[in-house]
Structure formats: C-alpha cells, structure tokens
Design a binder for these strands. Sequence first.
RNA 1: GGAGUGGUAGUUAAGUCGGUUAUAACGCUAGCCUGUCACGCUAGAGGCCGCGGGUUCGAGUCCCGUCCGCUCCGCCA
Length: 585
Amino acid sequence: MFDNARRTHTCGELRPLDVGRRVVLQGWAQNARDMGGVVFINMRDRHGIIQVVADERCPDAVRQAAAGVHLEYVVEVEGTVALRASANPKLATGLVEVVAASVTILSRTPALPFSIEGHISANEDLRLQYRYLELRRPELQKNLIMRHRASLAVRRYLDSEGFVEVETPILTKATPEGARDYLVPSRVHAGQWYALPQSPQIFKQILMVAGMDRYFQIVKCFRDEDLRADRQPEFTQIDIEVSFATRALVMELATNLVRTVWKEMLDHDVGELPVISYTEAISRFGVDSPDTRFGMEHSDVTAQLRATEFGVVRGPLDAGGIAKVFVVKGGGASVSRKQLDAWTLFVRTYKLGGLLYGKVGSPWTGPLAKLSEAEQSAIIAASGAIDGDLVLLGAGTYAAVNAGLGKLRAAVAKELGLVPPGFSFVWVVDFPSFELDEESGRWMAVHHPFTSPRPEHIALMGTGREGEMFADAYDLVCNGYEIGGGSIRIHDPDVQSKVFAALGMTPEDAEQKFGFLLDALRHGAPPHGGLAFGFDRMAMLLCGTDNIREVIAFPKTASAQDLMSGAPSPVDPKQLRELHVRNTE
RNA sequence: GGAGUGGUAGUUAAGUCGGUUAUAACGCUAGCCUGUCACGCUAGAGGCCGCGGGUUCGAGUCCCGUCCGCUCCGCCA
C-alpha cells in the first residue's frame, strides 16, 4: 500500500506477529514521556496509536532526539517491533512497541490552543478556528469516514437500481419562492445575478423530460437562512428523481436505500417502515416529524372540556381553540415543581400561553384539580392515565397547542431519560398542498410549487378552497428528524400554471420566473416524482450525534461564519467594480 | 429580527455581601528521574477578568450598551 513511501506501516496495525520487523512510521506525537533514561512516545495517525521507546538499546543521539519530541510534533521513527514489558490493554497495538533506531522531527508546533487527547474541553469557537486540530480527534475522523462509507453505499445502491448520477449547475437562476438565495453577481452581464441552488429541483425535473428516467446526485445546496444545531447554510442532499413513478415506488426505493445504508453502516435492520398521514402525525404527536421511539402520545380533550368552568381552559376553547393532554407515567411523584415551571416557560416559546398539570389521584392535585370530577374522568378515559401519573394539558389555538405540546413531548422524554436507543423510522404522507401565510394573507406551498396535488383535489384550485387540498407528498422521519422529503411532481403544464396562479403569481410572473420549466413540461413530460435526503442529517444519525457540525469537516457557526478561514470577508473594491456592485455600508 | 445562556492565564474552570497581591488543574519553560502509558518530583513564567461607557473612595463582582460562541423562536418553497 505504501510502496512509494518511506512509511512502511500505520500506527494502528502492528501486532505481536510483527515482532522483529524493521518498520518506518510517520505520525503525530500524541504523548511524550521522558523518564530520564528512557523516553516513550505515543505516535498517532488516523489508523491508531503505537508506543515508541528509546532506551539503553538505542544510541544516545536517538534518546536525545526522542526527548526533544513535544506534543503534536510530526515525527518519523525507524525501528524494530518488540514485545512490551507491560502491555497496555487500552491500545489495539498495546502488546508491542517500536524500539527506535532513529527519530526524526518532520514538523513542529508551538503549544497547542487545546488538548487533542481525551475529552473535548475547549469552547467550540476555538475548536472551529483550529478545525484542523479538532479534526485530528478520532471521534471526528470516525464521523468523516462513516460519511464517506455512507456515500459509497448510497451510490452503489442507486447504481444497482439503474440510477445515473448527473451534475446540475451551481450557478443558476434566482427563485424568489422559498428560502433566501445566495446570489453571485455576473461580471459579463452588468446588474444581473446568478443564484446558488437551494436544491436542483427544476433541473432534475427537466432531466426527466430529457428522458433520463432515473437520476440521482449527491449535491451541495445553499439556503441563506438562519442556522440551527441540525441546519447549515450549505448542506448536502441525496437528490433522486424517477420517471413513470408512483408515490409507492419512490417510497419503496427510498426505504430500500435507508435499509441498505443502515445495514451496511451499522448492521442495523430498519424493519418495515410505518406510514401515517400528516393529519395523524399532528393529532398523535403535535408535530409533522415525530420521534416515534417512545409513547406519550397526545389526546384531544376539546369536546370533553367544552363546558368546563375552569376559565383558563374554557377561554381558549370559546375562542375556537383546542385542548390536548399527554401523560408522564408515574410523573406525579417524580416530576418536580421546578421542572414544571421550566416546561411552562418552554411551551411559551411556541405561543402556548401556559401549561396546566394534574397529578392523578383521589383527589387530583395541581391546577387541573380545579376541573370537575367528571372532566377528570373524561381525561383519564381519553389518555389512559392512572393514579400516580402526571397529566400535562395545553389549551389554546390549534397551532400553539400542537407545537407547544409536540415539542414538549420530545423535550420531556429526553429530560426524563425515556428515549430508548436505536432508530425509529416513519413515513408521513398527505401533507396539505397550501397553507395561508398570516403576514401576506396569501397561499404558500407547504412543500414546493411543483408538488402535485392529489388528483381528486386538483379541481379545488381557484375556488378559494385551496386549504382543503392535499398533496402527493411524503417525508421520511427518523427519531424526530426529517431526513428525507419528496413528492409526485406536476407534469401537466396547465396544472402547473394553475398552482402558480393559486400562489398569487400572474401568468407573466410565472413565465418570467419559471417559463423554462413550463416550456419543458409542454414538450412531452413524463409523469415523475422523487425525493431528497438530507445527507448531513442522515450522517448525524449514523454517527449517533445530534449536532450537524460533527459530521461536516468545515462547518459554519450560528452566524454563518467560517471561523477558520474568516469567511465572509470584505473584498477588494476592484473586484466589486468588475462585478458592477457597490457597497451601501 | 427576538429570547435564553456563556465569555476570568495557552486551555478548562473557581472567585462568597463590591474591599489586601485574582485562585486551581492541565498545558508551557527549566531541572531531576531507566518501563511509563492521565508517568512522577522540584522550581518558574504566564492575566486589559470579551470590548466600551457608567455608579462607587474602591468593580472580575452592580448598571447600561456592544461584540462573539452555543441553544431555541421567527425563518428554513
């Protein structure tokens, strides 16, 4: 493997069978211990760690050279493999060591800004500034290797299913719909701009018109929106599109992709994936990307409490709101007042005014003790609570109750340690086509404007009943993360035009913004559909982390900066002049 | 755009009611040590307490502003 290199072995591969072998190793000094007469150096590369020793068997010059090795120096050691006097069971190479015949320092470093060995201790901004040091840590190297292997598995699977990987442009046309675009000024065309793609959506549909049949691409996408722990402004998608596809076919292909990747990466059998409707997801979990590893499902008690005299509940119901509950088993005794207060603050961030709780017993205690016995019995009947349980109730608008209790359900499960390890996948289907934007009062596409409505709902467009339409869309959810989403697309240009009109675009608008797609659809478009996986989130789950930065080599901070390179940064005025751009600040 | 939280030697943290010379561990430097593996021992260097104002006889500590990290809300077709 290293025929043309001086390095004969990696630091992770030597074993007792190699004793007596002459080797040349190159790597980083993980740890250097000078005992006076004998010097030990733990050498590390990405394959492992091995102990090098310089003692009385070595010339004085070698011992001196070894004593001059400091943390994270890059060294070359030539020597002979020997059995160790005392083994180190913590190292895979722990039965052997290399007795140095020469020690050469290849590269030096000043004192490190943080320690690479052991547990993470430094603040994240420092670790991002020195990302190359952070990336020496085995945990991150393991994640990058997992990511690499997953992308290979994806390509192998899709290739075996007849998919062709096609690259689509990075410099594309700005689309005013959806997320903010990253814009790139054109030098040649003064005042005109490219946009970086939010997704290759339109290009892949046009590839279907082109007869490409089964397309995929592992591709960078860009959205100029604020970040989260699971969201970066540039991210990688596994983008898939299939001609002549039904929803069932796309879902089957995607399921098999996930099944293959989880089997090959983790030897984990994902089993059969349940399918629930969007409506059912909201009803049972309050959110459209539910974590289904645990229970605590919601129960609607609006009807049961319709006539309650408890004003805090009655008020929202009279205003047209709803009331839902979920149950913390045994929580009557184990959950503290302090936790309940924190949860109340938590649901307020989702515009849910408050959280009402009751400890089930005879009588109940807590705010829900104010309900009548009949009402308490009705809650017990609806939720299955028993004596000793904690009932959490939210009353307010439909959106606030679902969001507040839905996010609280996940937070409570995590806080109380009720989330079992493993993976729980679920397909969520039948999303609404449109939702009303409160600011503008206009219909917005829930998925995107190219998503086909369910065929039986197409006639509702333009009747004012757009809110009743459902889309032929589907999301794949794992452990509460949306890891994939897609739809059957519109292949009829007339239907596509009607959707643009429903979204408030004039025909001229639609032609100007999406004319090239409409033109393509007019030239013999096959029925088609597809989906895209969030590859970073998939890698997160495979690596067992909940932070997307741990599966990206060079991630950005929450304010979208690269602390290592310093991007974004001011540019030379000459560059701006060439691009016909002027700074206003 | 908003909320929460953090910012004190190179690093991680402690710092009480506003009061002497701002502590500790790791790292670093020097010396000692022949089997360590979180080596050990001795000594030493190292600080604009994020930054800018203010209150006070006196501010790491209280107040106002601001910058940066993280988490969340909005946003993310």
